[in-house]
Amino acid sequence: MTAAAFNGLAALLLALAAIAGLCVGSARLPWTVVVGVLTAKLVPGAASLAGNVTAADQVIVWLVRLPRIVVGATVGAGLATAGVVMQGLFRNPLAEPGLLGVGPGAVLGGVIVFVTGWAARSAVALPMAATTSSLLVLAAVYAIAASHGITRLTHLLLVGIAAGSLCTAVSSLLISANAVAWQSAQEIVFWTMGGLDARTWVHVWVSAPFVAVGIAVVVWKARDLDLLALGDERAASLGVEVEASKALLIVTAALLTGASVAVAGLLAFVGLVVPNGVRLVVGPRHRTLCPAAALAGAAFVVSCDLIARTAHPPVEIRLGIITGLVGSPMLIAMLARRLRVRGGG
């Protein structure tokens, strides 16, 4: 399959999942109402056309369903791109954003906000704290791992894993050491399982700009990523500013991850399954891989979220469970097929 065909397919899946997500929910709305709300909101001067749309319909479509889909797409694109960067930099298909301690760092920030009670007072506190603490953890990891201006990736990886474990342990300690009320502890556990329920436009604004900038940076640095795969010396001899480029890419991956975890919790596997799956189809060149993975990530998360909220009504299954449940068999299937093709050829 060509990259163009793959992108077309992913875009189609994303569009279908988004349309289904707009039309399906606990309130039964005919699709004409959904279209009415969207035209009234998106087409200037069309508000008068939407005669059959009530205020309640507007709230459901515009304030409940749409932000959830947009956040899902943002998070999927962000995590998948972060995964592409990490796997490219570490030249290892198992690398994922969590390795730098960024994911656990974001969770720790979230847990602190829950424990101190800020989360109960302001809806913005949680995403802000999660993003900030993920960046702080990354800065610490980088400062410790860098020596004499050279950053060995193995050092970065080890320090990152250790920092991540520390953050996870501190989070668990805060939750279990009676530091929080009963219900808050439950809330935290729910949040760490990852989910997109109750997302609002606020969550879009605190994540989408970071993710957009992050993806742009990765596409811009795609050639560097390709060359870094040949090794630092080769890359340097081919004109790559190795240290600067690595630093920029790692910060970008962290930003993408932090912004995603901040608004959706920990979504298992998205940063691992999507880039690897997409790489099998469109190949390893980052100029094509990165946008394709971002698009596929968005389609994957929005589709999984659709399953999460419709599979078992009225209870919502946590999105993190679905991404793991759907993602792992998909990756295994793709790998198995690839191995058979190779074995046969």
């Binding site: 929910g25 606990s26 309130a27 459901i60 409940v64 219900q183 439950q186 009225p314």
Partner: peptide, 18 residues
């Protein structure tokens, strides 16, 4: 009609009840 739990209510259901 049920609208979910205290920390995770279903806004869609709430809105539908006007």
């Amino acid at each position: 009609p049920r609208v979910g739990t205290i920390m995770r209510p279903d806004l869609e259901r709430i809105v539908t009840l006007r």
